[in-house]
Design a protein around this nucleic acid. Structure first.
Lengths: 155, 155
DNA sequence: CTTCTGGCTTGGTAAAACCAAGCTAGCATC
DNA sequence: GATGCTAGCTTGGTTTTACCAAGCCAGAAG
């Protein structure tokens, strides 16, 4: 599927997929969340070819998810690193949801290699739907409704 | 990227991408959550070609995300529908997170076409990290740590 | 036994992934 | 100031996949 085919939809899921609909891109983001910033480190960490990495990073920069920023180590030449923007940081919840689902349904007997914890309390964290008070609600209580005020669609 | 290249990783994100790493698959799931079950309805709703739809549905069935189930309308021949399994239902949080991010960062001036609400209270819902008590925590408080007890990785 | 229709399947072309090799800018060294 | 080194791309050529159109097939109606 081409990125072009996803464009100009009024569906936010589809619009998100323009940017992160590619598996390589998700793996790039995973590494970025783990602290990777340099081109060669992404290559080494996820085994992507350099042409694809250059292409995907350009898409992420264009979309405002990552920022290409020069930096200088003392006595070395200027280099470039790719850093997550605040917009990009918010994708953590998407990656977290993917990881959580994979932990539950795709491990085939193994155990999760990573977990999500609160930095302040150390509690194990989950990704869930929450209401206006910030309290989690059951999956079965969630419905998707059109914004324009049409009747709700049970999903 | 081939599905094969993602296999046999111990990373749950990567394992999840084996199943839902394709944009078409995400759109199929979106329609499934909106109630679509029939092959031809998926084709009409998302504009996918029939060969790809057959392939992606087979992957989803194989992964236990959807179930192919015969049904008979009175006086009609037996047909097949594709229904989300409980495993598939849990992907709603992934789709919800994607939608939420797209609402916030990919609409370019438009307004969201769908929103997520509580069926019982009608409150607007968000996708977020929650602690063991079910209370949402701030994104900045989330860290990913290796499960085996190594020191935490700040992300 | 012919027709219709939903659900795939196949064939051919266009696009993308993939791999290897090559290029380039900036600094270091000679 | 010429040469070398290296991170970060860029390009060429091949394989794989997407895509589109057309065709096939099984079951039910007529």
């Amino acid at each position: 599927m081409t990125r072009r085919a996803l464009q100009d939809s009024d569906c936010s899921i589809q619009r998100s997929l323009e940017v992160i609909g590619d598996p390589w891109t998700v793996l790039i983001l995973r590494e970025a969340f783990l602290g990777t910033t340099r081109f060669s480190d992404f290559v080494a960490a996820i085994g992507i070819s350099t042409d694809l990495l250059a292409d995907r990073l350009a898409v992420l920069v264009e979309a405002g998810v990552m920022e290409k920023r020069p930096y200088s180590e003392p006595g070395k030449r200027t280099r470039y690193g790719y850093l997550l923007t605040p917009t990009g940081m918010e994708l953590r919840v998407v990656l977290g949801a993917l990881q959580q689902w994979g932990d539950a349904h795709r491990l085939l007997g193994g155990s999760p290699s990573m977990e999500r914890r609160s930095r302040t309390t150390g509690q194990r964290l989950e990704v869930a739907f929450v209401d206006e008070s910030g309290q989690a609600v059951a999956l079965g209580d969630v419905e998707f409704v059109p914004s324009a005020g049409q009747r709700g669609v049970q999903v």
